[in-house]
Structures are given as structure tokens and as C-alpha cells.
Design a binder for these strands. Sequence first.
RNA 1: GCCGGAGUGGCGGAAUUGGCAGACGCACGGGACUUAAAAUCCCGAGUCCGUAAUGGGCGUGCGGGUUCGAGUCCCGCCUCCGGUACCA
Length: 976
Amino acid sequence: MPRYDAKRIEAKWQKYWEDNKTFKTSDQIDDREKMYVLDMFPYPSGNGLHVGHPEGYTATDIVCRYNRMKGKNVLHPMGWDAFGLPAEQHAIKTGTHPRVTTQKNIDTFRRQLKMLGFSYDWDREISTTDTDYFRWTQWIFLQIFDSWYDSKMEWTDESGKNWLGRSRPISELPIPEEVSKQGEEAIRRYQDKHRLAYQHEAPVNWCSELGTVLSNEEIIDGKSERGGHPVTRIPLRQWMLRITAYGDRLVNDLDEVDWSESIKLLQRNWIGRSEGAEVDFFIGNGTASDLEKDFQTWKEERSQTSFPEEAEEQVIRVYTTRPDTLFGATYMVLAPEHPFVDRLTTSEQSEEINQYRTKAALKSDLDRTDLAKGKSGVFTGSYAINPVNGNKIPVWIADYVLISYGTGAIMAVPAHDLRDWEFAVTFDIPITRVVEPPEKHQPSKEEKALAREHDGKTEYPFSGTGTAINSGEYTGLKTGKFKKQITYFLNKNGLGKSAVNYRLRDWLFSRQHFWGEPFPIWHELDEEGNPSGLMRTEPVDSLPVELPENFNFKPHGRPDPPLEEASDDWLHQTAEDGTKLKRETNSMPQWAGSCWYYLRYIDPKNSDFLIDREKEKYWMPVDLYVGGAEHAVLHLLYARFWHKVLFDRGIVSTPEPFHKLVNQGMILGDTEITAYQTEKGEWVSSTDVKSETNESSGKTEFVHKQTGKILSSMNLESDQAEKKGEHFVLVKNPEIVVESRAFKMSKSRGNVINPDDVVYQYGADSLRLYEMFMGPLEQTKPWNMSGVEGVRKFLNRAWRMITDERADEIVLNSAVKDVEPDEDQLRILHKTIKAVTEDIEKMSFNTSISRLMEFTNEFTNQDIRPKSAMSDFVLLVSPLAPHFAEELWSILGNENTLAYTPWPEFDESKIVESEIEIPVQVNGKLRAKVKVPAEADQATIQAAAEKDPNMAQHLEGKNVVKVIVIPGRLVNFVVK
RNA sequence: GCCGGAGUGGCGGAAUUGGCAGACGCACGGGACUUAAAAUCCCGAGUCCGUAAUGGGCGUGCGGGUUCGAGUCCCGCCUCCGGUACCA
């Protein structure tokens, strides 16, 4: 009668753990080794938990439970990344305050997580929306606001490590004399320009129909996701964080962390560090006729002074990674948004230029991508002088040059840059070759694609390195050497300097939303009530700046933030000196709260500081961080950046926050078999079907490749299809190929698995076990409901191995006896302990479950099951199926939770077998197996193999050339 | 296009990092128990040839190579998944 009853057991132990605070981590630091295991905290959406969440959470839970039993002091917290758009959109629709919606969702998530039996210390729960939490988010923002980056500062941290570059208090920023001469306000503005948090006009996606600003994710094909309304890009005042200052350190410190190489590479590519030079090209005062003469004078002056920090009006500054190709620069290109465009445009060209600029401004990023096929641009009518050879070259504008990268202007070397080549060919601009490819060089695919016929010859661009030609005194130099020498020359003559650039842009840190952290910033207003551009910070002791109450969530229809409509007492204030102040009305992006939550868990209730110094030193860094790969770039980059600022400012002690990172793979829906039919019901092989996006409706359609007819798709049951050769085909019509694959879970596809249902039907331990048994943690895997049933059957079996299912009371199975295990049993037990231990250490949970299944299979066949072996087994399953294990542990006669019972140790000597079976091969093919003593030497093994009756026929009449014997492994006869 | 990851039975996946391919599980087939079903237990199973085996051939996306020996290493392709979009 007492079968394994997951529902009863799970409720019982969840209550026990909660009542006894079994997993509470003490506030006191002790001398045990620490282990900080962190999950990426979820955004509590209205849909509740999906099966992807428990995957990572189960993995970390196993690691935690295992390490507690190993005697470590484990910190394992959970919380909520609870600011975000959906709650605000819900508020606009219904008027319900986002706080209410959010609280409701959090309650659902918490209930669901508790139902799965994770060993979180719930006393440390935090939400980014708690005023007590975002008080410190704002405080950190003020630290960033109060910092400037001194890239030249050399310093040593507490551990004795040397660093170059550090964020320092803005009060330590050296003020140039010409600035301080202009007085207090000039100094303040100079400081504001150097802060790590600064303001900047940046384009936003404005949708006038919806009356709101949209994020990139809310735009599909240049139209709003909701309603399909047009979106335009308009400039708006925004907050930026100077993450590029940390570009080098964000790249370098990746060497210090234990992350997969592919994630590190992803980050490196995202940062996209490149080395090159900045060079000034002389343009004079607009369209001067004496350009060449003025150039000589300018060059003279420059050689006396040095390369100026900021370019003057009379030069175009460019960034290039190939200063060695300077002699081949035959034109220049400015981004359409470049501030010099107006000045450089001649009256004849102005109409064309303006048209082009208007067109470019309307283009979203996507349109620009569409335009990637082919180059467009307009000549400004003006010229610049190439500083190395004095050549007069035309200045163009083109949208293949981006205003946001480098200096927003390039020198174009068509012979050695594929984009410049394409542009020059299109507009018939001269091409000068200045690099000779290495002798055996063959043009690459891309280079071949751009071939042109010129003077009867086929010409290709060449973007590689080689030997300089047509480069004056530098001719004959190899590219690398040339770069060094020319950079030295440019620097000496004040014409250029070496420079580093990043693909990474400064972080756009403001959003035009209500449901986010307010900025602790006041703007000073002048007599007319307009912002003067000067700012004040909210005093630290009056943080947090809370969101206004009684707010009307309906959009006000302007691009500026919704908080502009907040009540006057929130929005305005008069300072003690009588200055009128207006609050910053942008809010922080959702990333803000997730940038430092791992710190707050360590000391969640501290009301004096964001984290206690000693606790931080004990617990940081996070030892294991598990989450989805979708955060591999942005979240991890932003959090690392904040952490480094806090490190520089002495608030945290480690340069990196997350030591080991693991990304769990996605869980797909159940495998679907799809077949295609014409309107008339004729089957069409999936190999003859292509999918297309319908232009007008935006929906995906299936089209017959040969006839172009629209097809319908239908899902089949698995017994309607079978494998034939490479493909699956219809059982009834094997000519027809069908598709068999698993898809991402989505509401629209209707293949979403709800964890609540799985727990209801099979229990939390089965869900946990199945998610781990599916395959390697980091891999993408399809869900399969009967797999859950499989692990459930395993739990049933293991339950029966220990208890007597047929008894009326819960009692031990009569086979379980208080006796010593025999030699075989000991070997199985110790082999299992060893394998499970090593697999958990490797986070190879799927194989550790296999081991436990093998153990169960072995021991259910035994008539006598020693109690000690059963106890060890229960301890081994406990991290994976904790409720199940706790219940069996108590049935085995133990009083307390097993959560802190020492992990079983294995004894290698108990594992070795006295006699082993060794495969015997002939020419690498398995022909026999022989039993030999485990420690048999080569000669003994070979003799045993030769004696084997099966071997005689294989060796008969053959000439044995060589015999390979690997003791303990195999024998291979090489014969002719 | 570029970057990254992956291709092993009907399916999910294992394989001391060069040494018995297919552990473990699902699905499937056969049997036992049962009046019957569920549950449970036992047996079978990569594939082809063969009456059978302790038989033989072929088998880790495809084509080559290195090696006594390759799922694993090297060279050249193909397919799928994920990321990214003119970064000078």
C-alpha cells in the first residue's frame, strides 16, 4: 500500500525545511570554506515559470546540496529582476499599478520555486523593485556619476596586483588652466563632460501612433510590434555610461575567469578592440582655393606643436587600422551625420547632399542592412589633403560610414578595403595599389566577388598584409614594420597618433519608462524655467528617490518620458540657495538592478551600506553562476563593468564578480512530425517545400518549390512516419518525405510545458531528475513527456528496493538487512560513489543519474541488501531527488535531515577486481575476450590470448608481424 | 557573409580524451503474473547475410589521410542550430 507518494513526501519535506530553516546561511562568517552558488534571477513574468527555469536552478541546487554535505559553507539565494516593460504595459491597459502586478507575479514564482524543493535561503530574497534595494542601485549610480576614468593611473590593489587605469572621484580630475580661468560654472561643465555617467543626444525609436518610445525588441521590420505602426528615429537627451573606458580591462580580465572559451570569445568580439591610428587630413577653412598652400603652412605648424587632443575645424580626423595604406587613400568619406558636412558642402552639391542626408536619417538599422547590397553616397564638392603625399582628394558622404564608430570619418583606400573598393568602382574614383600581396596569394571568395575588368585585365581588391609599393620612402617595407614606422612619423610631425577603438559603444543607460529606478539627479533651471544644463545630485542620506504615487499611466503622446507628467511636488523643488530644480524624468534600464544583485544577497538587510566589507571579502567572488546563454553578452558585460567601477572605488575587493560561469541549454518542445499538403490534399515531400514570409501579412507561408503553390502543414503522430534512409517518410506513402524536429517552446506554437502540470502528475523530484537526465546541462534538448515517466519509474524502483510496498505501514523491505556488504556489493557501491561524486563535480548530472540507475538495477536483484549500502545510496541521490531521499533517510531510521550528513567516501581498493576481461583483436577487429588477473603483465596476457580457442582459427596460417599488449586494456595481433 | 556550437540506433544520449561503439533511459517486440487490465518482473533488439552461433560483412554526416588501432587526431566538403550585420 505505501507506494512512493511524491505529493505527500514533497509537501512534508518542504514544510520541514521551511519550519527548520534548514538552508539558512548564517550571518556570521565562520572558518569553513565558502561556496557562493548563484542563479541568474528571473524576471517574474505573468506566465509563471516555464520548464527552462528549473533546469539551471536544479543544477545549482544539486551543487549546493552536494557541497553542504561536503562540509562547505554554502550561499544560495534567489530574488527577482522585477522592473520591466510588461508590467507597465499592463498598467497602461488596465490602470493597475505595476507594483501590484509585479507583486502578484513574484508570489506565483516563489510558490512555484518552493514547490520544486530548491534549497534557497529565502531570508535573503530581494527584488530590484524594493525601495530598500534600489536605494543602493541609485547609490551606485551616484558613485559612477562621481567618477572619471584616469587611464594613465598606475596602482596596486589590496592583493598586490598592479593595474593601469582607475576610476577616481571627480573632485580629483585635473582642471586645465584655461577652464578654471573661466570660473566655477565652466569647471562644473568640464567635470560633467568627464564623468563615467554623462548626457548625450542619442536616437530613439519614436512611434507617434502609439505615443511612446520603443525598444529595439519592440520593432519588427521597421514597424511597431503592436499595431504595425511606423517608427522613426529621433534624437533625445539620454544618459550614457562610459563602459568603453573599461574596454581593455573587460577584455584582459577574461583571462582570469573560468568561463567557456566560446563565451569569452563572444565577449571579446562584442567589445571588438582594434588597434590603429588617428590621422588628421587638412581641409582648410571650408572650400578655400589655396588648399595646397594652406596645407603647407598647417603642416609646418603641426610639426612644431603636437597632435592635438581634439581635432580643430580645419582638419578631418580619421581612424584607421591600416596606417600603412595612407599612400593609397584616394578619397575620404564622412558619415552623413558628421558635423562638418554642412561646412564642406559646396552650393552646387547642397541639394543632393541634403536629400541624401534626409534619406539616411529615415533609415532604421534594418534598412541600412538592406542597403548593404551596393554602395551609395554623394560628393560634397570639397577636397582634403593627404598628409603623407600632399595629394588633393575628394570628400564624400556615404552611409557605409557610421557616425558612432571611430571618428565618424574615414580615409578610403579602395585598393585594400573591400567596402572602399566597391564604392570607388561604383563612382569611378581612382584606385591606387600600395600593398603587394605575398607571392602565392590567391584572392579570397569576397575579393573575387568584387573583381572588375580594367584595361582588359581582371583586378581584385586585396585586404591582406604584404609588402608596400607606391609608398615613397616606405616602399619595400612589410605591413607590420610599415605600421610602426609611419605611426612614429605621424606622431613626430603632429599629424597622427596610435589609437585603440572598440566596437563596443558607451552604454545607453536611460529609458523613457515609468517602471524603472528613478535617477537621483536634479536639473538646475534658469529664470525662464529652462534647464541650464547644470545638475545636482540627490543627497545620499535622502535616497531612495521613489516613484511618484497616484500616477496616470496613459501615454502623454510626446517622446519625452512619462514621468514628465508626475505631480509637481515630485517633479520640482527649490534648493536652499534658491535655485529652481527639476527632477530627471528618465528611468534606468532593466539591466541596472541585475548589475549588482549578487552583492546584495551577501548582506541583504544592511541599512547602512550596500554590503558589509568583511562579508564581501569572505563571499566574493561568486564561485558558480548559472543562467541562459541569452545573457552571455550584455548582462555579463554590464555587471562586470559596474563591478570594476566599484572595485576601483574601493567598495568591492575582487576585479571580477563571477568566477565560474555555466550556460544552460535551451529546452525545446516535444519533437513534431510535419507533413505538407496541397489544397487538394495531395502530399508534398518536405524537401520540395520552402518557407517564405508573406510581404503583406508578415506571416510565414509554405510554398511548393516547383509549382509555387501555397501548402498547408499538419502535425502527424509518431506512428504515421518511419525512417527510410536519411529521411522520415509517411508509412502509407513512403515516397513522401516528412519533417521531424523539435521547436522552441512558444505560446503561438502551443508546445509550452508547464512545470505545475508536471509536478502535479509526476512530482517535483521526477521533474528535477528528468531535466538533469535529458542530457548535458549546456546542450539544447527536446522535451519528451515519456522521459519523465522513465525517471519516475526509476524512483519507484529505488523506493521498492528499500521499502516494502505491499505492507500496510511504511516499513523497510525485508531484503534490507543490517549486515556487512559482500565483496561484489562493496565494489558496486564504491564504484557508484566514485562515479556519482566525480560526475557531480563535473556537473555531468545525466551520467550520475545513469550510475544510480545501474546501482538500483544491481541491488534489486540482490536478496540481501545491506542497510549501510542503502543508506549510502540514499545520500547519493539526495542532491538530485531531495524529498525522496529525505523520506527514505527517515525510513532507514534517521531522525534529522540528511542535508548536512557527510557525503559518502569511496575506497579505490574496494573497486579493483581480481580478474578482468580483456578484448583480443586481430588487425584491430575484435575476435575474442580472455579473462586474466587484473595485474597480469604483457607476456601473461599475450599467452592467455594465444591460448584462446577462438584465436587459433584467426591466427592459423597467418604471419604475426607484431603484437600490441596494453596491460589492463587490450591485445592486438597484427598479421599478414 | 563572418563568428561559435553540433551531427553516434526509431528517439534522448554514454564512451579514462586514440584502445570492446551504442552505458543509462524512452519507444518497440516477445513472454510471465492476472478472469482481465494497470502496475510489476523476465527476455530481445544498430544493420545486412545466415537455420543457427561463441559465425561473417557493414556501421559514429560525406570524401581522403595518419596509426597496430580513429566517434575521438589531421586535410577537404555537406547539413542543422545559435549569435552577428558595412566597426574603417
